[in-house]
């Protein structure tokens, strides 16, 4: 029900406004819902708002899991 994408924070001012970089495009975003977020963090963006801060380790593990599945089946 809710289209949202993962993007990296490129700019974040004191009022909680800023931008994210999503696949090379700049998108205006509001970070008021994720006060813990810092530039360089990856967040989930929906309707112009960051709604969640991503977990780098978990992301890496998911990637690894899929790489393993892709490789294991190939052998």
């Amino acid at each position: 029900m809710c289209l949202a994408v993962p993007a990296e924070i490129t700019l974040l001012d004191d009022s909680g406004q800023g931008t994210v970089n999503y696949m090379g495009s700049e998108v205006k975003a509001n970070f008021s819902l994720v006060p813990q977020a810092r530039p360089g963090d990856w967040v989930i963006i929906h309707a112009g708002f960051a709604i969640s801060v991503m977990d780098e380790n978990e992301a890496r593990e998911t990637l690894l899991l899929f790489k393993e599945m892709a490789d294991a089946s190939r052998r």
Partner: peptide, 12 residues
Amino acid sequence: SKPVRAASELLG
């Protein structure tokens, strides 16, 4: 192109 890929995912 990257911008089109990005916009298509972002804006659906």
